[in-house]
Design a protein around this nucleic acid. Structure first.
Lengths: 190, 190, 190, 190
DNA sequence: TGATAAACGAGACGGTACGTCGTGTCTTCTG
DNA sequence: CAGAAGACACGACGTACCGTCTCGTTTATCA
């Protein structure tokens, strides 16, 4: 039942880990644009084929590396009120600024490659939308925001502003932004 | 006096135009990711060197092509009230959805290449922010929105939502979005 | 034991042969000066990298092609007397006049590139000197030429005249030259 | 009468000299293989067109530079006897060893380019043959060498050995070679 | 225990585009 | 009208990665 044991030599978990680690290391040292499959393989001490066997692109490798990082996990706060929940959520999100190079690279890849875009949305972007939706739905249930409120638009505003500033870097992603954004959303949705 | 006539053979305007046209044609036929300098040169009937002499990357060529297209010009409506101005502005912006592949490609390049990012911001993104700021400042002057309103945040919300939906394509960029966004911003800024 | 099996995919002998053949074909059709690595790769149906992996220059490829041609093999006659040996040797050498374009090209490359010059001397020019030296040493042993004769100078004379006429083409490389040169050398070395 | 004054601005002798000097300087600093028309023009402070107007190739420029050098002039000794004449001639020739890089480069160009080869022979190589022929004809007239001697072959031997050693550098071009070659030729031609 | 089967490292392969270099021609202004 | 300046079309250069392939080797399961 649990079976599914495939024939032949099983996938090497050590190699898998080495590849993910190598990808992150290359990313840190050289940046996303300079990432190459050759380079990852060389650093991981594995053959290129092994990478191609399990991932479809370098972005795929990076996405998996990213998702394995503990700090990328989504926090779902429950502070009792929307403003507090939102602030906690935004603070947790802002705290991941260190991932910028990686996230920016993945977004670039998503823009250039529709297949990867689908995967990036499914495994990353939409998961975060889902988390935020939980907070907002809770607020609707509590009556903190009006029943007819377009929750999807609120989500778009939060992530739209976040990504827009994340990409352009013309203004900071800090607590002050969190407070102003929270205040604005609540005022707009009462 | 105004002179500034440089020495030597002057830059060929015909070649410049051929290159920009070739870039747009390649873009339409094959998409941004498949653009190559070789391909542009071949189609334009010019040497690669000539492209490298005047532009620093393929994104640079594409950006200039794009800026020369009349339809990329920024509309600055003046309808007399903020809601009308905003709707007109958003409608004009949404009308450029056909440029999506190009704009997405340029954004991808900006994410991968900081030098190009700076240029893209200066020549494209910030020009649009400036236009929107004019509308909002006008509304502040007219008392339509509160004096202390964080105009920059409003701009970030508009363009944040626009780009976020533009990139993810999880929801349409249409008049209904325009109306809801306008309503929300006005409610939040009174 | 003799093993030495290298790791990884072994070198493709088919590709090696295709490259050498393509080089000779290009040489015949277009001449040495018009040879290009691009052209050889195109005709051989291989990537340029494959050529660069195994040879350091186009001259290197051509030299190897040449050395594989059966007709480039050195004949070592043993007719019993120096005049007969020399005539046989010269006839065999003159018979390779068809290789002129190739040899001239290789010599040109040797003049321009010291690294290739060393290789050309080692693998081609000195091998021929060695063969001729065998003939002359034999003649010394038989007493046909004086014991103190400067054999190296005789070799220089033979190959000097040959190459000089080969290059300048101001006089033929034919049997009459062979006879006169033989006679002169013998008269001078008695 | 002497006229032949062409119309328009006359050729600039200063520029001509600058180009020839620049060619020699580049030759000395970088070697023949690295010579470029661009480089010569840059160093001479002239336009490339000016070079193309008056010379047909870089080899052409170099040949003219070489021929203008005083030390390249042919010495025609008249010592009274063939051995002395020959030795003097060879000594004078050997004394030009410093020109090796230039001469080797010109010879390489001659091998690659038949048009230049013709010019090189006419203006350089055959002039030297002519000079040597004068010496040898004088010796025939004096009865130092037999009347039926193949003078052309003797010339080929002298220049063949010289160029062969000059190119291969496997043995020196020195007085000892001069003496041995002289002795050999005289013994062979009595 | 040995056959079978897949994963793995290594690295060669056919390709494509890169960005640079040099060529020989052209187009402008200056002397 | 020669000459400097330098832009131009062209085409080869040698390199970097791509994604695939072909080896020998390793590590499992199954008969």
């Amino acid at each position: 039942m649990t079976g599914e044991r495939r024939l032949g030599r099983p996938r090497s978990q050590a190699t898998r880990a080495a590849i993910l680690a190598a990808a992150l290391a290359e990313l840190d040292e050289r940046g996303y644009a300079a990432l190459t499959i050759d380079g990852i393989a060389r650093r991981a001490g594995c053959g290129k084929q092994t990478i191609y066997r399990w991932w479809s692109s370098k972005a795929d490798v990076v996405l998996e590396s990213l998702l394995e990082r503990a700090e990328t996990a989504i926090q779902l706060p429950d502070e009792g009120s929307l403003p507090d929940d939102l602030m906690a959520f935004l603070k947790a999100t802002f705290a991941q600024r260190g991932q910028r190079p990686t996230l920016i690279g993945l977004m670039a890849q998503a823009l250039l490659d529709p297949a990867f875009a689908a995967e990036f949305k499914e495994k990353f972007l939409f998961k975060r939308r889902d988390a935020l939706r939980v907070l907002l739905d809770r607020a609707v249930a509590r009556g903190e925001i009006a029943a007819g409120t377009d929750v999807e638009l609120l989500i778009d505003i939060v992530y739209g502003v976040l990504w827009y500033r994340f990409i352009l870097e013309h203004a900071p992603l800090d607590d002050e932004l969190g407070e102003r954004l929270t205040a604005l959303l609540i005022k707009a949705s009462r």
